[in-house]
Write a protein that binds this DNA or RNA. Sequence first.
DNA 1: TCTGGGGTCCTAGGACCC
DNA 2: TCTGGGGTCCTAGGACCC
Length: 417
Amino acid sequence: MNSSEATILHADLDAFYASVEQLLDPSLLGKPIAVGGGVVLAASYEAKAFGVHGGMSGRRARELCPGLIFVHGHFREYQRLGDAALRILDDYTPLVERISIDEAFADVAGTGHLFGSPADIARTIRSRVREEIGLPISVGVARTKHLAKIASQVAKPDGLCVVDPAGETLFLRDLPVGLMWGVGPATETRLKAEGITTIGQLGRSNPYALRQLLGPAAGEKLQALAQNRDPRTIVTDRRARSAGAQSALGRQPAELRIIRPTLRHLADRIGSRLRAKTLAGRTITVRVRFADMRSVTRALTLGPPIAATTTIAEVAEDLVLGVLADNPAERSISLLAIAVSQLQRQPMLQLEFALGFTDEKRRPGSRLGASRWRADRALDHVRDRFGWDAIGYGAVVVKPGHTVPDGFRELAERDLF
DNA sequence: TCTGGGGTCCTAGGACCC
DNA sequence: TCTGGGGTCCTAGGACCC
């Protein structure tokens, strides 16, 4: 459980990608900018004031904000500067939990005699990130992760918000439920239908009705947070439970000539990441999104874990063909996705052995595992030396301009270990 | 608000076992 | 052959987060 002192910090870099661009090119300071082109990946505060936000199409963003300046992303710089900024937290405590490229929690309990109060530490961190890195960062300080996270949101932009333990109930009472971790558009709408719009109201609402409305787990969890009961502590080593890749296709006919190379490319992305970490997974899940945006998923769990590109691609293809067979009216698709889960550590020797698995139903007596593994390894080595694009499983048929830069994909990948 | 990419967790129903 | 009840695993879909 948490102590009675406010020692949790939540540090959150402000409008991160956009701020980095303004740092790299000071002539952009104070101007509405958007990172990206066809799709807005991030917007500066000046652009957000016009309603521009991430995920929005470039055309829509330009409509909302005629003077909007589009800039290409400097993805290497995002990773480097995000790491550098959040590494400053390590100077004050070993208890740091990195949430994403631009966000982290830290618990500074027991370090007061060295660095001052948690609020002092937060102020120091903010000025150091500003001076040493050149970026604005907001920090929330509170007794729990939930309070600290909300506090940093309240502090934005470029501010500090300290929640005194004695004032927690008052602090939460009138804030909108949408500020809470776990309340998205769907939950917010459902709560609003019951007349619940503030965190205080959520805390006081009937627990049974709430469980009925949101399901037992979400109901209990959200009410606990609203009543300021947050048992979570800092987790310093998070490991991924799945690895996936997806590709938006615009609008393509649901034909093998489109599907096969796309799946091959996705399987290759996932497989190379898994192999680099000596991981393999037992469950393969595919998602097919049709042109009307309706999507269908299908999964298969195998006996042994797999990591070979070709094996992942073949299983995925079988699953996708199954989806299409069950939806004969759908003639075109707009997205394909593969995810591999039930990950297990798979040392190389064992991996080669395990990949000799035979899938009785599909390919009786198949013994391609070892040779596939060797082929993948050769590919991985070439890429280590010459880069990812040096060699691979053929170009994918994607409408140019509709796709996202590879740098952004890599950025979105969570460290598998 | 017309849609990018990578993740996490929860739910409900079915299969299967004891 | 009917029946109860619990546990575990799997699948499909949904909501949410950055």
